[in-house]
Design a protein around this nucleic acid. Sequence first.
DNA 1: ACCTGAACACCGTTCAAGT
DNA 2: ACCTGAACACCGTTCAAGT
Lengths: 196, 196
Amino acid sequence: MNEAELSKPERSGRLSADDWAQAALDMIAEQGVAAVAVEPLARRLGVTKGSFYWHFPSRDALLVAALERWEKLELETVWGQLEAVPDPRQRLRALFEMVAHEFKSHVIYSELLKALDHPAVQPVIGRVSERRMDYLTASFRQAGLGRTDAQHRARLAYSAYVGFLQLNLQLHQTRMQHDEFEAYVEHMMATLIPSV
Amino acid sequence: MNEAELSKPERSGRLSADDWAQAALDMIAEQGVAAVAVEPLARRLGVTKGSFYWHFPSRDALLVAALERWEKLELETVWGQLEAVPDPRQRLRALFEMVAHEFKSHVIYSELLKALDHPAVQPVIGRVSERRMDYLTASFRQAGLGRTDAQHRARLAYSAYVGFLQLNLQLHQTRMQHDEFEAYVEHMMATLIPSV
DNA sequence: ACCTGAACACCGTTCAAGT
DNA sequence: ACCTGAACACCGTTCAAGT
């Protein structure tokens, strides 16, 4: 590869719809949903904005495509990892650990939580949440709770998870230190996980 | 008042900065933060958009003014009501009841949670959250928890509160029925409130 | 099959001129 | 002290024309 190619993201001549969707997803991770704009993306990809409309009918359609991409990704990686953990307590802990250490998938999840304003974001986040809550419910049943209690506890635990993400976003200066975070997770587990 | 005046919001001739701020706040409650746009507001107020810039230097400044207005309002009404409830358990219950029945202040709070994307929204929501969490911490101390436990439990409870709001926004079709909601609140209280 | 370039609409912002 | 109206920048969208 020569020097001229180093300055731009390498691609083989022309773009595909997937290239645009991936660029949009990167943009969400970097600067949030609002930053997904046709003109800046076109600049970044080295084409004019007019060409965008050959691949997608609208900016909205691009957002939807990017979000579908993310949904598939998070289903495979993040959620797949958790499924491997048999003990329900360990699973909850693993979930919170993942949040704390900010994998890319969670960065995007946070960005989407901030942009719930947008109609395209709501259904995706809704589906992901529903899936996660079903999963937690099953975990709590395995841990010995009755059906109704398991459902309520799952809702409570998932609320705690979403709320925790939000608070971390909100109280940016008060971002928790590692030790404090560990202590909080302990407290949360002791409170939410049924004892053996 | 004659028929011509009925079609427009009544006002005495010219506008003040407060009129614009209130109109912006109404817009947030109705259609969210993104809907706060100079041109539509000007149309609604019956003036041209140019006049807006006599009152505010930018759209952002308007947003900030509207949010300050809301912060003062919510501090007086919502939070003032809770302060009147002496028992910490009743207080938590009162808080969740308020969320469930969607007072205007909570409608706006929800809208702001959805628009955490916006730099002007974050500090306001941050201050309000901090105040609420301090308040919860004090309640849990009164209810008999040690200092650290009270802090953690307050964070957990507030996360549950914020997360609950979020889930209600997300799972719109699955919006809880009254009985189910009451049962959930019972479960949450039994889990989060220390026993006597 | 994919891209350019010019055009238009919409909104934020500026400013000289009006009352 | 507050408003108008024209101007410009920026972004979404369309489309005829290019390769």
